[in-house]
């Protein structure tokens, strides 16, 4: 796998002196699906904001496709390569209609109108929101707005998309829809960095990275992280099924083992 994002000894303190990141090392390969989890304030947003140069290191180095974020001249390239979707869809809306909003990014890249139209169509389609194209943000629900925000980033065809807690304000139904879309986007070859504190959403990830107090405290497959780390210590709730399977296997039913999904646990209980 080609290395795409290289974070070495990254330090970050905010201007008011708040330390947010402390010697973070993380390598992400092209096409990976990496989930980053951790309690509120553990530094997840601070970390991912370095990847598209929204924040710059106080120490150490972040590079994307070999371009270092501390050189300003690389920012346009880096931001084209790495797109970002945030938690609150309201603060991201710039257009009068959904369609306009999605077109905003590609227009800014100075693409020809025919190509913009194609990209907007493709993105609305991928998100399944073509019929919302002429809706104003006011008439959209939170989940719909979040899909518009994702379509807007997708329309710029970035190689990597960072999703920073994009489902945390959605109901389970929209959450699942948005997560399914993220998986689809990943399946088409986009590198995905997905920040969440809901580990249920991490089951399909190649890697699960856990942050605590500005450090990376675990970085492995979800299965290995669940087996070898005490996540409660880091303020993270295990998915109910995972927690239940671990409780049972530790309480004298070792055959049950670790189950990542409900079906795995059903299979272990009634083979």
């Amino acid at each position: 796998m080609t290395l795409m994002i290289e974070i070495s000894n990254l330090l970050h303190s905010y201007p008011d002196g708040t330390p947010a990141l402390n010697s973070v090392n993380l390598h992400i390969g092209r096409g990976e699906f990496v989930v980053i989890a951790g309690r509120n304030g553990s530094g997840k947003s601070s970390l991912v904001r370095h990847i598209n140069a929204l924040l710059l290191p106080s120490g150490g180095c972040v590079s994307v496709n070999g371009l270092c974020t501390s050189q300003k001249k690389h920012h346009p390239d880096i931001r084209r390569t790495v797109g970002m979707v945030f938690q609150n869809p309201d603060s991201q809306f710039v257009g009068m209609t959904a369609e306009e909003d999605v077109a905003f990014g590609p227009e800014n890249l100075g693409l020809p109108p025919s190509e913009i139209r194609e990209l907007v169509e493709m993105s609305l389609e991928t998100l399944g929101i073509s019929e919302l194209r002429s809706h104003s943000p006011r008439s959209l629900s939170g989940g719909q707005k979040q899909k518009v925000a994702i379509a807007g980033v997708l329309a710029m065809e970035p190689e990597c998309i960072i999703f920073d807690e994009v489902t945390s304000m959605l109901d389970p139904f929209s959450r699942k829809e948005v997560l399914d879309t993220v998986k689809r986007i990943h399946a088409k070859g986009t590198t995905v960095i997905y920040v969440t504190h809901r580990l249920e959403e991490a089951m399909n990830a190649d890697r699960l990275v856990i942050m605590d107090s500005g450090r990376v405290v675990a970085d492995a497959s979800p299965r290995d992280v669940f087996l070898h780390h005490d996540l409660e210590k880091y303020g993270i709730e295990l998915p109910p099924v995972v927690a239940l399977s671990l409780m049972l296997s530790k309480a004298g039913f070792p055959d049950i083992g670790l189950a990542l999904t409900k079906d795995e646990l059903l299979e272990a209980l009634c083979p």
């Binding site: 249920e200 998915p239 109910p240 099924v241 239940l244 409900k262 646990l265 059903l266 209980l269 009634c270």
Partner: peptide, 26 residues
């Protein structure tokens, strides 16, 4: 609209596991 744990318990019942169905937490 049920929590996953409740669904699990219901499915277990269906498979002949004699557990209660109105369970909401781990």
């Amino acid at each position: 609209h049920l929590p996953e744990i409740t669904c699990l318990m219901k499915e277990l019942r269906r498979k002949g596991f004699d557990v209660r169905g109105d369970i909401f937490n781990i």
